[in-house]
Design a protein around this nucleic acid. Structure first.
Lengths: 182, 182
DNA sequence: ATTCATGCAAATTCTTTGCATCAGC
DNA sequence: GCTGATGCAAAGAATTTGCATGAAT
């Protein structure tokens, strides 16, 4: 349903201070696969072919997805490497526990986001094409901590989503309006 | 399920700059009821006893709630002023359209928040007691606009939720730990 | 009179669970 | 071999929808 996220760099626009414009992979010592192994071992859980396969799939591309989308691109029942829906849901949850994925709710569905190997970031959500874009802001985190402190809150995490219309959709719309006038 | 929100003022804590500590009602010329009437009229929709009753209920206290909680405190089937689940859901949606309520997803449920008559604000969510606290930050809005501009986004709205542990729950926990040591 | 709104129950959607069987360790 | 993991189907939870009836304009 939702489209791939576009983490292409967007250089200076109207506003160009010292703000990060990209969310680039971090240097990490362990692969997601290895990291997951450690997690499993630490809890006495098992290394199964399904889990390995799913981690591979999930980290094969840096994009946001929901359970449905993941299942769609997985082998069907009867095919090699088939994994049942139940196991997909169970494994996604484990990925979140393991710190590999982050999850949040959007339009009623649960969206997953690579956590391991990527810096903390937030999202711009286009309500027209449903694309999710990432952004980073240290200032945002400062404000978060300030607000939390003010209310005696110990921060565990935060989630910010800016909804609106992306550049492409605005262009498309403008173009369409022009055409309509002709 | 979720508790009432506590919009009690929290004055200067560790961090006291010029930050708002309260989310107070705004002056509005129309009551929610009147505002909803206008919305209905403008769309040729009807003024029904169920709708009136629901608006009264929804605005009788400033708190966050979900459909289930609302339905729970409404008259049961057979009693006076009974409103069916379907109508509750339909009306909540209309309230959002009408700009009376805001809705967002939290822990899989849809939470509603008074929009009309209250200033824009964001939330602190206690993962222990599930309480929602409000905060306001103009700086946050500035950063939002800056980030949006940077990506060529036209902002429609945003949603920020800071999750963590509230003061009361921290206290409770600390107390419990002390007791455990005795 | 029209047409929209309501109540009801059934349908949806997304996700979780119970349980028999299977497979890591 | 023990115990956790999987697949399956069935159950759940939250919300929506189809439709006949009732009510607002």
């Amino acid at each position: 349903m939702a489209e791939l996220s576009d983490s292409t760099s967007e250089t200076a626009n109207s506003n160009s201070e010292t703000v990060a414009t990209k969310v680039e992979p971090l240097e990490v010592s362990l692969s997601p696969q290895e990291r997951f192994s450690e997690y499993l071992q630490s809890r006495g859980l098992r290394q199964t072919s399904q889990r390995k396969f799913l981690i591979d799939q999930v980290f094969s591309q840096h994009e946001h997805f929901d359970a449905e989308e993941l299942i769609e691109r997985l082998p069907r029942r009867g095919e090699a490497n088939y994994v049942s829906t139940a196991t997909v849901y169970r494994t996604l949850r484990e990925c979140v526990d393991a710190g590999l994925l982050n999850s949040f709710q959007l339009d009623g569905r649960t969206v997953y986001d690579h956590d391991y190997g990527y810096p903390q970031h937030d999202h711009l959500y286009c309500t027209r094409c449903r694309k999710l874009l990432e952004f980073q802001s240290d200032e945002l985190v400062e404000i978060r901590d300030q607000m939390a402190a003010l209310h005696g809150f110990r921060v565990e995490s935060h989630r910010m989503i800016i909804s609106g219309v992306c550049r492409e959709c605005s262009r498309r719309r403008r173009k369409k309006r022009k055409q309509d006038l002709v």
